[in-house]
């Protein structure tokens, strides 16, 4: 009779040991290929230059802009309050804390759309959420906001309203202020970043 209890107890211990080792392999926050591909079809990850301009003008606090271009390009010109995280240092643990903030909408931008999309893909694979891409990048920023084209006389009222917004926004962003603001240090704005503890396993990716 006693042996039975010993056996059952040891079985439970064994189960405990097995359980302790089993979940390890499936315990990652990384996103798999199928999910990532389905997200590629979701166009809501793109943000227009107008929306970004609107966010900056209104000082929406829950949004951060991340400039993924190299530092020298960032120093020449960047959008107000943008943080510079060049694509080649995107995965450094220090920067990850900036990107991985669920409560803050992170918008990546570059000169075009490609580098920002790449930054999005890499960060998204790591499981970071609330990430967006400024469609068209700075090239489109200049074309739409700084050099807004006057619509035809036959344009609809929404087009005219958009033009008026762009014109006003262009004046808001125009002038020496942005240029003068291009300080030498890469971090313009000190932000308190909630550092999330990452396990070492997260770095290695999916083995």
């Amino acid at each position: 009779m006693n042996i039975k209890y010993v056996i059952s107890a040891s079985l439970l211990v064994l189960l405990g040991v097995i359980l302790a080792f089993l979940p390890e392999k499936s315990h990652t926050t990384e996103i798999g290929p199928d999910k990532l591909l389905s997200e590629l079809n979701d166009e809501t990850r793109f943000v227009s230059t107008d929306k970004v301009a609107d966010n900056i003008i209104n000082g929406v606090p829950s949004v951060q802009l991340i400039d993924v271009r190299p530092a020298e390009e960032y120093n020449k010109f960047s959008l107000p309050d943008a943080i510079n995280i060049p694509l080649d240092s995107l995965l450094l643990p220090d920067w990850q804390a900036y990107i991985d903030q669920e409560g803050i909408k992170t918008i990546f931008y570059s000169n075009g759309t490609v580098y920002a999309s790449q930054a999005w893909m890499l960060s998204r694979r790591l499981g970071f959420s609330n990430l967006f891409i400024m469609k068209g990048g700075l090239n489109r920023w200049i074309e739409t906001i700084m050099q807004a084209k006057e619509p035809d006389q036959t344009a609809s009222s929404t087009e005219i309203a958009l033009y008026e917004f762009r014109k006003a926004a262009g004046q808001f962003f125009g002038g020496g202020t942005q240029v003068a603001g291009s300080s030498t240090n890469t971090k313009k704005k000190k932000k308190v970043v909630k550092k999330r503890k990452r396990k070492a396993a997260a770095e290695g990716g999916c083995g």
Binding site: N111, V114, G137, I142, G176, Q178, S182
Partner: peptide, 15 residues
Amino acid sequence: DEKPKYDYAKVVKSV
């Protein structure tokens, strides 16, 4: 796509 089409700082200043 990623080639800057403008001298951003200059354009912004000129506006």
